[in-house]
Each structure stands twice: as C-alpha cells, then as structure tokens.
C-alpha cells in the first residue's frame, strides 16, 4: 500500500513537470523539466519491480538530455511566444482530451489487476525459463531467446533510423555545396 502512495506522488510530480515543460517560456528550463519527468518515470519503474527498464530509462534519459541541452543552449532561449488567443483550438483540444479520458476510464476498468496478466504465456516463461534457457534474468531470456526475432527487428529499426539520420546529416555533400549554405552561416 505504501508503494501505491509513492506511485501517486511520483505521478503527480510527473504531471506537474509536464505542465511546466509545456508552459514555461525558457527553453532550457523546459528541457530540464523533461529530464525531471524522465527520472521520475525511472524511479516509478524501479518501484514497480522492473529494474531492467529503469536502467534503460535512466541512461537513455541522460543521452537525450545531453542532446537536447546541446541543441538548445546556444539558441535564443526566449524563442517561444504566445501569439493571441486560440479559443477554437483550445476547445477542440479539451473535447478530444475528454473523449480520450472517458474511453480510458472504461478500458482501464476492464483490465485485469496488476500482476495477473491475461495471457498464460508469461507464466510459461517464469516456470520454464531457467530450465530451457539457463539465464537467471528472465527479461533477458525473453528478449534474447524466446523472442529474439523481436530484438532483431528492433536492431533493424535502429539501423534504418540511423541510416536515415546519416543521409540527412552527412558532411561530405554539405562541403561540396557550400554556396547554398552561406545564408545559414551569415545569419
């Protein structure tokens, strides 16, 4: 029961952090509050009994924070300005959030309680994992033995995204066509 209270406190912290991220005017502060939300999420994973995900969340959060801070620290920090009132878009957003919350209320009440999954295959992994794979970390035995296809697919997704990023950010063509980039430099 104590864990539940703590999870609710962390949830409130994350909601406040997200609101601060959206509403604050300084871009660097927004990035820092995104990082705070991510670290609260990793603590949440830790209390839910998922240390693998918690480690991954912390490390990926650090990496994304470095990238975001590096990209925003040289920019004009007060770039976000509110331009007028958007009454219609605010109303539309509120209506859609209400619809999504209503559906979420019904769907979460039809779920089984936490720790009692509806699929029997996870119980099979817990019973037979040590005998069939020999790994004491069941998460690793699932992602690299029972479901290794998925991990291969994830590696391919990462490979494709990195290839796309390289195609956009490459340097050699950029230096051939320096004249087109002159406008950016003198800005």
């Amino acid at each position: 029961m104590n864990t539940l209270v703590l999870l609710h406190i962390l949830l409130g912290f994350m909601i406040i952090g997200s609101l601060v991220t959206v509403e604050i005017r300084n871009m660097l502060s927004a990035v820092i509050s995104v990082g705070a939300v991510g670290f609260a999420l990793s603590i949440m994973f830790l209390f839910l009994g998922a240390p693998d995900i918690a480690i991954t969340q912390v490390i990926v959060e650090i990496l994304s924070l470095i990238l975001l801070i590096r990209s925003t620290i040289n920019v004009d920090n007060m770039a976000i300005e509110k331009r007028g009132e958007h009454v219609l878009s605010n109303r539309a957003t509120l209506i859609f959030i209400g619809i999504i919350l209503a559906f979420a209320w019904f769907s979460f009440h039809s779920l089984r309680p936490f720790g009692y999954p509806s699929m029997r295959v996870s119980q099979f992994y817990l019973n037979q994992g040590l005998k069939e794979v020999g790994a004491t970390n069941f998460v690793t035995s699932v992602i690299l033995d029972f479901r290794a296809y998925d991990t291969l697919g994830e590696a391919m997704v990462l490979f494709t995204s990195i290839s796309g990023a390289f195609a956009i950010l490459r340097r050699w063509k950029r230096e051939q066509h320096k004249d087109f980039l002159r406008i950016d430099r003198e800005h």
Partner: peptide, 8 residues
C-alpha cells in the same frame, strides 16, 4: 546481462 538486470 543474463544474470543481473541490464543487457546489451
């Protein structure tokens, strides 16, 4: 990674 939490 196959003994304690962690992995590749």
């Amino acid at each position: 990674g196959h003994i304690t939490p962690g992995g590749g």
